[in-house]
């Protein structure tokens, strides 16, 4: 690419601008992001654009990424914990093409990580940005359908209602059963849905060195958790917050403290548990960690 982009633009009238969105839209979204960072956990409205992918494909996350990405970025995209699902691969290709950025599957190498369901197992670093694709940004929506009312609740920090969902859960299951989109309080002020990550990942938000940006395309909201911000998962005094735990270890890499997916192997009820974060699992195996079923065919497929 020796030709100046502008010169090329004049010559060939490109089909799209750098990173797909026009500059004015990007500026608008960047302003929204700055405001979101300034008010941690607060949902900032923005003029969400039509994207060349359907809603539910993460149009909010894609717009956020498109607005912050530069040529020197290294982009990683995961769906669940995996880099190689159809969605993740398409979004990665999309940015490789329209922003001409380097892409990676390595958490450590990435500068921007777009995600749908997980936060990588490997500790994030300063300078890294997580971009979350959010389907429903309003944690109170299921309990209070009126937007004016939820807005007032945020404005006046009236969050008793959110506990109603926890109360319902304990009444029904004797524990707080929610496993994903588990509500948190950001910096002891704003109630936020870390939608849709599993609650297993909630503690990773707390005091993370990385910047966390959340984009909801259909609902037209952006919110953020800046680096080193307190994030507390809601709970009751007598039913404290707990993350999921597994009796098994990862069958492939033997990891004891990662988020495991259950894989059904056959009709006989045989199954195995493997790391949901495929990059993490592969790196561990490369380092020589061995799980109880390390020789399984899946080991090749996910490495």
């Amino acid at each position: 690419m020796s030709v100046q982009p502008t010169a090329q633009a004049e010559l060939t009238a490109p089909l799209y601008n750098f990173a797909y969105l026009d500059e004015q839209t990007k500026r608008m979204i960047r302003r929204t992001i700055l405001k979101a960072i300034a008010i941690p956990g607060y949902q900032v409205p923005f003029g969400s654009r039509e994207m060349p992918v359907p809603y539910g494909w993460g149009t909010g996350g894609i717009q956020v990424t498109a607005s912050i990405i530069g040529r020197s970025d290294v982009f990683k995209c995961i769906d669940q914990g995996a880099d190689d699902t159809t969605n993740a691969v398409s979004i990665r290709r999309f940015f490789a093409k329209i922003a001409e950025v380097a892409v990676t599957e390595s958490t450590a190498e990435a500068t921007i990580i777009q995600t749908r369901h997980r936060i990588p197992e490997k500790d994030l670093q300063e300078g890294q940005v997580m971009v979350f694709q959010v389907p429903q940004p309003e944690p109170l929506r299921g309990l209070e359908p009126r937007e004016t009312e939820t807005r007032a609740m945020h404005a006046y920090e009236e969050y008793g209602l959110q506990y109603v969902s926890l109360y319902e859960s304990v009444s029904a299951y004797r524990r707080i059963a929610a496993t994903a989109s588990y509500p948190v309080i950001v910096d002891e002020r704003y109630l936020m849905s870390p939608s849709p990550i599993p609650k297993f990942d909630n503690p990773k938000l707390h005091m993370s060195p990385a910047l966390m940006l959340f984009g909801a395309g259909r609902e037209k909201r952006i919110y953020a958790v800046p680096p080193y911000t307190r994030v507390r998962s809601l709970d009751f005094e007598d039913y404290p917050f707990e993350t999921q735990r597994w009796d098994d270890v990862c069958a492939l890499c033997g990891a004891e403290e990662s988020y495991l997916d259950e894989v059904v192997l056959d009709d006989q009820g045989n199954r195995m548990f493997v790391c949901s974060d495929s990059n993490h699992c592969g790196e561990r195996r490369a380092e020589g960690h061995v799980g109880p079923m390390a020789d399984h065919a899946l080991a090749g497929a996910t490495s």
Binding site: G160, L161, Y163, V164, Y167, V170, S171, E237, Y239
Partner: peptide, 16 residues
């Protein structure tokens, strides 16, 4: 039950 309990939570009740 949760309808009845909500005012307590709104007033800061955090003990289920």
């Amino acid at each position: 039950g949760a309808n009845v309990a909500e005012p307590l939570m709104s007033l800061g009740g955090r003990h289920y």
